[in-house]
């Protein structure tokens, strides 16, 4: 999205999606804050530098209670990028803005609070497992790593992963692996009927793929900027 205005300096604005973690407190808030403190004791660096969204839709807060909870989180060095699920007129300048319509993008696995935060954050967030079919119109976006789908990816659905994509079912939609710039990512599926494949931004025209691969187990990878698609042995 580019907006240029007619004065001497043209101001360009672009849209860019960012992944944010959402904190959703539950009632009673005081108990939730106590649990949060316990968590912070075991994983002290977890929120440092991480932009967070606060989702208060499960609580019915007043304006003052909302300001209090934001202050409580700032006191714990949790930086809020936005607030979800509240009255927009309560969020003045100096408070995080209202955000809405966030896309569900994978589950960051709950860390075991007894282990070290930094290393487990990387390990836990590197792979997303989906155990239901991905329905037409749904998008799965997971830039942190691999996506595994147990089920089919429907025509009109898309999977975008920073790592590889593994579909234990029919791949009928679009798959884009290595989306964060990883040319080593691969796409695997049990039944190849895809509409579009991309690895590290390189797309391939599906209609040029040999017909004998349709409906078979297939893997796709990049070999020096050329997409190779071959039969995969799946028992």
């Amino acid at each position: 999205m580019t907006i240029t205005d007619c004065s001497r300096h043209s101001i360009q604005m672009r849209g860019r999606p960012f992944m944010a973690l959402v904190l959703a407190p539950q009632q009673p808030v005081a108990d939730w804050l106590t649990d949060l403190d316990e968590w912070l004791q075991h994983s002290p660096g977890f929120f440092t530098g991480r932009p967070m969204i606060l989702d208060v839709s499960a609580l019915s807060l007043s304006k003052i209670e909302l300001a209090d909870i934001i202050a409580d989180l700032h006191g714990r060095e949790i930086r809020l990028m936005g607030i979800e699920g509240t009255n927009p007129s309560w969020l003045g300048l100096g408070m995080p803005p209202l955000v809405s319509n966030g896309r569900q993008a994978g589950v960051i696995e709950v860390l075991d609070p007894t282990t070290d935060a930094r290393t487990t954050a990387h390990r836990a967030a590197s792979s997303l497992l989906i155990q239901n079919p991905v329905r037409s119109g749904q998008s799965v976006i997971f830039p942190e790593g691999d996506v595994t789908v147990i089920g089919s990816v429907a025509s009109g659905a898309e999977v975008i992963a920073g790592g590889s994509i593994h579909v234990y079912g029919a791949l009928r939609g679009r798959a884009s692996a290595g989306s964060s710039g990883d040319a080593r990512a691969r796409i695997f599926c049990s039944k190849f009927e895809a509409e579009l494949l991309a690895i590290d931004g390189l797309y391939t025209a599906i209609d040029q793929i040999e017909p004998h691969l349709r409906g078979r187990p297939v893997q796709a990878w990049l070999d020096c900027d050329k997409m190779m698609i071959t039969m995969a042995a799946v028992d």
Binding site: N132, R135, S136, G137, A154
Partner: peptide, 12 residues
């Protein structure tokens, strides 16, 4: 069938 798949996604 494709439209029904979309609607199933919305049901969920």
């Amino acid at each position: 069938v494709r439209d029904s798949d979309r609607i199933i996604g919305l049901l969920d």
